[in-house]
Design a protein around this nucleic acid. Structure first.
Length: 534
RNA sequence: GGGCCUGUAGCUCAGUCAGGUAGAGCGUCGGACUUUUAAUCCGAUGGUCGCGGGUUCGAACCCCGUCAGGCCCGCCA
């Protein structure tokens, strides 16, 4: 059973109606790590729907959270906004400075700035949650009732946090963080409480009162989260391993939510996605790949497969180089399989059966549109990468595929894939290993590895190519013909040609590539190689 | 200090919850395709299940211990 189905089954034991929730703080560029959060939720919601449950999927945008620091991508002017809520401050412009005009005219905030592109990516990837703006929820009084309970029962909550996280809270700790005279949540001391007012004194020496029913402040994170579960009615929530550890925010949250009069949601802890060789992704460290950036390179279903195929507790290592090629090719292979037919085989061991079922489940979850069957394109990423590099026009690529019998006419999916492939090849992410390059000087090592017969082909090949009219057809026939002229198999001709021209044992079709190059350069290279082996 | 997760074939991982002959994919190697060879098809290779004990007729799986990597107990997907 796929992991999402396992989660759905657990939910079905608890009731018919469910709300699966996810949440992210829009403090900086969203990256594909965030995609795991939301895709995990989306997949559980889908699986629950498949299991016949009534389920809604929500995405909470934590716009009530404060700006923690002036990140590298922000200008020094942001110093003044530290501690201010992300949904109440201006967005950075192209230079990282506050975009005041847009903030004042359109109400375009810091949170909007980072959220918007992420939502576009979600649309492409087939995730359509109900979006809840947390700051807006505070302001409209959604938290009112539960925030009141939290303040009324502050001692119980303090006890729970101190006991479970084994940390000591400061003397003046209070389960409500008021906004100060400047609109910051930092450095405010609570001096009293009479519902709905929380009285405070800030670090500028000012005093005032915060109305919790109007959201003039917020609940601290460890209470904010369970309060959300409460008023929204969350029954299931995936969260990162940081929240999941003993003493972490889920552990305190599950107890606090009961103080607030609700039941904790079914938890699902997931591991992080890291960039190969660079550790965990972090917006501030700058080692991120944005969802939009990733979608420029690969189709959404392949990105979905990345999350779907790994159980949540497995760390995912990702990169936009060879990992992506392998992932995309895996998608193609899976798309070409007929899982139902495979499962009919009674000879399958339990183990093999589970593997087929998991693969089928992963592909079901990878579909951008729920329930749509994957279409195998019959062309692997590797092959397409090769064609895209050797054919300058799209028509040239289609023609080659038609000749190979892979397609009749290019589908929309194929066209999309090719344009993404071209973007990928042009980007810094395209792996060296996939690049096609012809040598400029002989690769001695590769030549030495050739057999005596293979070596003997080189001089004949150089002569044949020197005399032929320079086009792909002639070049294509010259390689095997040179071998045949010596009573050798065409294979030896190819081995010799690849060793001489690319320094490898095998490679992509040489003729169309060579046809694009200068005849005399190729001939000279072959002559130099032939001279070397004699 | 306390706790959580991970460790299985060269690589990525299933299998651990319900103990019953170690499984996939990739890679590698070999063969086929006799003017194509990053393609396709066929076949083969490959593991003291981190380590040490215990329970059991039987342990990758359960229990105890131990090592290694990651994480949490301020904020963080």
């Amino acid at each position: 059973m796929h992991w999402a189905d396992v989660a759905a089954k657990a939910l079905s034991h608890k009731g018919e109606k469910h709300i699966v929730s996810t949440g992210i703080t829009p403090s900086g560029e969203f990256h594909i790590g965030h995609l795991r959060e939301i895709l995990t939720g989306d997949m559980i919601a889908r699986a629950a729907r498949n299991a016949g449950l009534d389920v809604e999927f929500v995405f909470i945008v934590d716009t009530a959270d404060p700006l923690r620091k002036v990140y590298d991508f922000l200008g020094p002017e942001y110093e003044q906004f530290i501690g201010h809520q992300l949904g109440s401050i201006p967005a950075p412009d192209a230079d990282g400075n506050p975009d005041w005009p847009r903030f004042e005219k359109e109400g375009w905030t810091y949170g909007d700035h980072f959220l918007k592109p992420f939502l576009q990516a979600l649309e492409q990837i087939g995730v359509r949650p109900r979006i809840i703006d947390n700051l807006e929820s505070y302001r409209s009084g959604r938290f009112d009732a539960l925030a009141k309970i939290a303040c009324d029962r502050a001692d119980e909550i303090r006890e729970a946090i101190e006991r479970i996280s084994s940390r000591e809270l400061p003397e003046n700790w209070f389960p409500w963080s008021p906004l100060d005279s400047k609109g910051s949540l930092d450095g405010v001391t609570v001096t009293g409480y009479e519902y709905p007012l929380v009285h405070w004194k800030d670090m500028h020496g000012e005093t005032g009162s915060s109305d919790i029913s109007k959201g003039e402040g917020k609940l601290p994170w460890r209470i904010d989260w369970p309060a959300k579960w409460g008023w929204i009615g969350v029954t299931c929530e995936p969260f990162g391993k940081d929240h999941g550890a003993a003493g972490g925010s889920y552990a305190t949250g599950r107890e606090i939510v009961q103080i607030l009069g609700h039941e904790p949601p079914h938890p699902l802890t997931y591991e992080w996605i890291s960039l190969k060789g660079q550790g965990a992704m972090s917006s501030s460290a700058g080692n991120t790949i944005g969802p939009i950036e990733a979608l420029d390179l690969v189709p959404p279903e392949i990105l979905r497969l990345l999350v779907a195929k790994s159980k949540p507790n497995k760390a995912i290592e990702f990169d936009t180089g060879m990992s992506l090629v392998n992932l995309a090719d895996e998608y193609e292979r899976l798309a070409a399989r007929d899982f139902e037919a495979e499962l009919l085989d009674d000879g399958l061991s339990r183990r093999q059966r589970v593997q087929v079922e998991d693969a089928a489940g992963a592909m079901r979850m990878a579909a951008v549109e729920e329930g749509m069957a994957a279409q195998a394109t019959a062309v692997t990423f590797r092959h397409l990468a090769l064609l895209a590099q050797t054919k300058s026009t799209d028509d040239g690529v289609w023609e080659s595929l038609r000749n190979a019998g892979a397609i009749t006419e290019p589908t929309q999916a194929m066209t999309d894939r090719l344009s993404r492939m071209r973007a990928w090849i042009a980007s810094k992410h395209f792996p060296e290993e996939m690049k096609i390059s012809v040598l400029s000087t002989p690769n001695v090592e590769a030549l030495n590895d050739l057999s005596q017969e293979e070596k003997s082909v080189l001089s004949t090949l150089a002569v044949t190519l020197e005399q032929c009219e320079w086009n792909a057809t002639n070049i294509g026939s010259a390689i095997p013909q040179s071998a045949k002229d010596l009573d050798l198999s065409p294979k030896m001709g190819y081995r010799a040609a690849y060793a001489a021209l690319m320094g490898k044992e095998r490679g992509p079709r040489l003729a169309p590539i060579l046809a694009e190059m200068e005849q005399n350069e190729i001939v000279d290279l072959l002559k130099a190689c032939a001279a070397h082996v004699e």
